[in-house]
Structures are given as C-alpha cells and as structure tokens.
Design a protein around this nucleic acid. Structure first.
Lengths: 247, 247
DNA sequence: CGCCATTTTGAGTAACTTCAAACTATGTGG
DNA sequence: CCACATAGTTTGAAGTTACTCAAAATGGCG
C-alpha cells in the first residue's frame, strides 16, 4: 500500500522493517477511491486527516475569482497531500484528482505517533516536506524565467524523474493522465499554446505522446533544452547517516 | 534583536517570557553585517548555521546558465533564511542581501535545543515554515496567472502586509529597497515593463514611490486590482490553543 | 454508431520583450 | 560644496511570444 511512499523516502535514508511496517499500517487504516477530477479538499476547509496518494494523480490548485486557475503541484503516487495542515487552520488551496485515484486517509495522531516513535521516519518526512518546498521554488523559476518550450519540457522531465523514483516508469515511458488544458494550468500557458509547444517537442523527437502515455526517447536531450537540473529534488541520499542496518 | 521574529511568531501564538528570551539569546550569539547585494550563501554550498534576518532585506534566487535570474522570495526582517537546510545537504538556491543588512547566525544545535525545550516554539517555527511554503505557492499563482499589473500590485501588497506584521510600516508607508530590475526578477517581468507597470499604478493613484519609500494610500483598492487574498499568510492566530498565559 | 471531451488548425491581436539612448538621482572625492 | 561617476529610472520604437476566438478534426467509450 505505502510502497511508493517508502520507495520515495528511501531516496533520503534506508528505512528499517519497523519503519516500513508503521507506514504500511498507517496507509491501510482507511482508503478512499476517487473518480477523475474529484476534489479531495477545498480551499477554506479544515483538514482532519492527512491524505496519501496511493494510486493515480492529483494536483494542488488555486483559482482567481474570474476563473483563472493555477496548478501549483502535481501529486503523484507516494505523495502526501496535506502534511502541513495540522498546524494551519484552513486550507489556502484546493486539492483534486487528475485521474481515478486511491487515497489513504491517515489520522493526525497516527502520523504524530510515527514521528515520535522513529527519529529516522520523522526526518524522512521532514526531508519530504523540504523537497516539496524546493519543487515549489523550481516551479516559480519555471513560470518566471523559462519560455514555453523550456517550461513544458521542464515539467515533463520532473514528472518522469519523480515517477521513476517510485518505480512507476517503464523504460523511457510513463503515464501522463493530465490533459493539455491541465498542463496549461500548471505551466501558466493557454491550452492552445501547450498544444503547439508539444508539437514542437514532438517534431524535435524529444517527446512521444500516445494516449495517456508519455515517452521520452532521450531524457538527457530533453533536460538540456529544459535547462533542467535535478538538484532541487535532493535525491542524493542525504540522510545516509540515519540508515537502518537491518536486511 | 529577535524582536521582528517574535512579533511575527506571535501572529500564530502568544509566546512566554522564556520563549522570547530563548529567541533573543539565540539571535545575539553571533551577528554579521552585510553590504547591499552580498551573497549570504550560494547554491551548492552546505549551510552550517541558520541565518535570521535582523535588519534589511534579502532574497532567495536562482539563475539559469544564460544568466536569467528569478527571485523566489523576499526575506524581510524576522525571516529565517535556511531552516530547512539542516536536513538537506546542499543549497538548491542562493540567498543574498538586497540592502545593507544584519543577519544573526544561529548554530544548528541552538535551534534544536529550542525546539526540544518548547513545544510552543517548535510549533511556531513550523507554522513559520508552512507560511513560507504557502507564500511560495502564491508566487506560483502570481507568475502563472496574473498579468503584469496584478502581479506587481500583488507583490507590493504582500510586502507591505508582511512588514506591517513585524511593525515595520509607518502609516501607509514602508521601505522598498529593491530596484525595478529586482522587482522584475521577482515578478518574471523585464525591467522596462516593471517601470511601465509602476507608472500605471501611480497614474491610478494606487502607489506612491519616493526614493526607497513605498506609500499605498488605499491598500484595499490595491488589493482589489491585485486580486489579493491574505489567507495564504495565515495571520489568523491559528495556534491560540498554545498561547502562553504569562504577562 | 454517435456523443462528448480533447486535440488541432488558422487568423488576428494583445501583452510583454528587446535594444538603445536619454534622463535623474545618489553618493564620492577634490 | 561642486563636479563627476555610477546606478537606477524613464522613453521610444520595433519585434516576439503567447493569447483569444472560433471552428474543424480526432479519439475514446458506451
């Protein structure tokens, strides 16, 4: 159940059997199946539990009064949706699914227990939160200083690499359930321009899109034109001094 | 010394005398004076201490190989520069001053002690980190879906309100040491366009700029055209159940 | 097969950028 | 206290990028 989360956290530090079991247990208490494009929680609401994406894609988004929408993050399997929120009283953004999805609802106390019981897991979860923050900064860079081609390419690189980290790629392919309109909401571009940009990427042989499958024949080349530097994902096993030693 | 940080944290919860003293002590161990536009720490480096802005402005920024620069956050008095970094091994962005500034360098262990000693401070610091994250999301919205006029207006609203929270406004005025080029790097606009946008805001009577002083005669009106909603700053005293009761 | 969502195309337009030069503060040394 | 240097702001004109609107094509699915 919590496989993807565990795989992700293990990019920071090796977890013990106990650590993993604690996560598995937390993730299996209560599950919710969602259809495509269903809100998980809305701006202004008070979150009661922490949602973990088990399966499928989601996103954080905000809208302006006149309907303009910005997606601030993609939530992939293994991602926690609202860690922060047990300190803040109100959501300042909404979260919804982008595909059929399964979410584990983890009660606050369970998370707090885990944090108390294992310093290693506590730091791993903290690492996770910091990487999310760094990702948000990178999106700021993406929107502020990259042009359309670089921007879309960058997003595709990020998604592919994050999925690869949790074992959800198949060679040079992965799923991409988001529509072009949604890619536009994430990159600050219009649907039409996303379409033209993707055509450009395809014409250059950097990207293949077939149905909901994305193929990146030459990731290095795509990273090049995106000016993509993976350092912000902090996949360097920085918590190795905490590594569990058991088998 | 730590006055601004204390004022800011008190928007989350009331602190006890001990809490405040602990912060004061931490902030007075070691101070560094910086000139204008000096780097505090650079991408790729490993931070050893946590920097607290005591005085003056700073910013987080990233640059692309070809020199394009994006400012991801403004650091105002009372802001902590690199909390996260005692888990991550490398900085994924740089931090520099935008004006002459004073920074307190707080050793890691001092922060960890504070966190251990006071659950209230611990949660207050967490709140602070979450607000920064929310602010980063709002900047994503700003860059992705607001036009130049809204974007600049939004930035000015945010800066003014954050400064007001720490007591650094004087009526409807505050300092604004950033140049138009820097405002451009923060809003993803060219210097020239920032200039024209500011002229527009001035012509509408929404903004007065004199030297390094910003005056906002009618904040509500500026918020209106910026589509500014302060909810993301979470100034609602959400940690009131933790309030200290001493005088 | 037919419906609805999504992608694609074209044409015209608006927003913002670039470049280059002029102007205006601010601060420094004589 | 003035003269000069420099950083920052402002202006104009031309060029680009991305947007809007509207319609046509495609694709997935019951």
């Amino acid at each position: 159940m919590a496989t993807y989360l565990i795989r992700k956290l293990e990019h920071f530090t090796r977890l013990s059997g106990d650590d993993k079991q604690a996560l598995e247990r937390a993730a299996s208490l209560r599950m919710r199946r969602l259809g495509s494009r269903e809100d998980i929680i809305r701006e202004g609401e008070t979150p009661k539990r922490i949602n973990l994406m088990l399966d499928g894609w989601g996103c954080r988004y905000k809208t302006l009064e006149d309907g303009r929408r910005q997606i601030a993050a993609f939530l992939l399997p293994g991602d926690l949706c609202d860690v922060p929120m047990f300190i803040l009283s109100q959501m300042d953004h909404s979260i919804s699914s982008l595909s059929p999805a399964t979410v584990a609802e983890i009660p606050k106390e369970v998370i707090l227990d885990i944090i108390d019981a294992s310093p290693r897991l506590s730091r791993a979860l903290w690492w996770n939160a910091l990487v999310e923050e760094a990702t948000q900064r990178e999106w700021t860079m993406n929107l502020g200083r990259r042009d359309a081609l670089e921007r879309v390419a960058h997003l595709l690189c990020e998604v592919f690499i994050r999925l690869r980290c949790v074992g959800l790629t198949d060679g040079d392919s992965c799923e991409l359930p988001a529509t072009q309109a949604e890619l536009g909401d994430a990159t600050g571009l219009s649907t039409v321009h996303v379409n033209r940009t993707l055509q450009d990427l395809r014409a250059r042989g950097l990207v293949v899109l077939k149905g909901k499958t994305l193929t990146i024949p030459d990731l290095a080349a795509l990273q090049d034109i995106a000016l993509f530097n993976a350092n912000y994902l902090h996949l360097d096993h920085a918590g190795h001094e905490l590594d569990a030693n058991d088998p």
